[in-house]
Design a protein around this nucleic acid. Structure first.
Lengths: 212, 212
DNA sequence: GTTGAAATTAGTACGAA
DNA sequence: TTCGTACTAATTTCAAC
């Protein structure tokens, strides 16, 4: 799940060989942290910031790309300056058994920045950026509503984007927070059992990392 | 509106000087199109792909950065491979007059990838990526619920991300769609007046671009 | 806004630890 | 695996047109 146009988890060839890829160590994560802030940094400068040799940086950099952990490099722009100052979310109810058509139609809509299938009241959420409110209205009533697979929509506008990170990493934690290691669970520790079990299970699953 | 941590529209200093920035022409947009797909391309190669000279490409590239149209360069990663295979949306109802505190708390949460203030039933939408479902549960019940500014939350899980573009541009239009130019409105054209007015108004506003 | 040449920097390929 | 260095290729800068 959570695949982008089905190009990650089972991309290779042989079925049965799940692409586990690299085990990301602390150095890999540090590289990803630096690249998140500056995707155009030279590998030489990257090596210095991470604290490894240039050759090592090249090796790891290439491995992360080849592995698919790094999908691509891109820019981040100011939508307002680009002329698309209005952002809206459209929650879509999809007619059952028309998912394939729904996806096909979306592929034809370059003005959509993001689309995800969700649980809950609606089936999908679409994020669009347009020049003005009227353009959103046109999109929803004339384009989306005409897709047979779309049963209903609900539109909300985004008034402000408080934060938008390119991505988050397992190493991103709240300032004062210490790394939550899977404690070896010493029997006899005086903690509420119910809560302990819950937290323990969560940590255990967190170890597995893939196959979600 | 739609500012990222208040760093775009009114960033400079003097009030009254709205940062209009560049007028983006077709070449600027083409540069942004190329950089969206390959943020690490050399300016030399960029020039070739856009069909302009090297020096021109450097000038425009620098202008876009200095202007703030390009905010930064970054990478795109595979969340599953990075160990955060679960994505969730948390819709938050914020207690009135506690917005400042709400924003302050969010700034302390590096695990949040995206947060936007919305119209509609809820007040804000937060997107988070975690290692497992239990971690989402912990985040919502123990971190978010403990923020006084948070009155209520509603969580949905993302089952699949159908598409995710770094950004959209005004030039992104559906394959067969022709560029909708603000036609000079020749009086006497035989179109339904009501509709005409509506579309005309929309196009007019699209011209303005900022101050939305 | 364009072209061409110089200086700098980046990327590659080794052997050694 | 990782590091250090030397080699090659490319990019950026700067100048003149």
């Amino acid at each position: 799940m959570a695949d982008m146009s089905g190009n990650s988890t089972h991309e290779g060839g042989q079925p049965g060989r799940i692409g586990i890829g690299l085990e990301l160590d602390a150095t890999h994560l540090k590289i990803l942290e630096v690249l998140r802030e500056n995707g155009r940094i030279s590998v030489a400068a990257l090596a210095e910031r991470v604290g490894i040799s240039r050759a090592n940086a090249y090796t790891r950099f290439e491995a992360l790309r080849a592995d698919g952990t790094i999908k691509r490099f891109t820019a981040e722009i100011d939508h307002v300056r680009a002329g698309l100052g209005i952002t809206a979310l459209v929650f879509v109810t999809v007619r059952q058994q028309m998912w394939r058509q729904f996806r096909a139609q979306l592929a034809q809509m370059p003005e959509v920045e993001y689309c995800a299938i969700t649980t809950g009241q609606h089936d999908a959420m679409i994020q669009v950026r347009m020049a003005d409110v009227a353009a959103v209205h046109t999109l929803v009533t004339e384009r989306l509503a005409n897709i047979p697979a779309v049963k209903a929509t609900e539109t909300v506008f985004i008034l402000d984007e408080v934060l938008k990170r390119p991505y988050v990493l397992p190493t991103d934690r709240r300032p004062g927070q210490t790394v939550r290691r899977p404690v070896p669970d010493p029997a006899g520790a005086e903690v509420p059992l119910g809560k302990m079990r819950f937290v323990g299970a969560a940590e255990g699953r967190a170890q597995l990392q893939q196959d979600v």
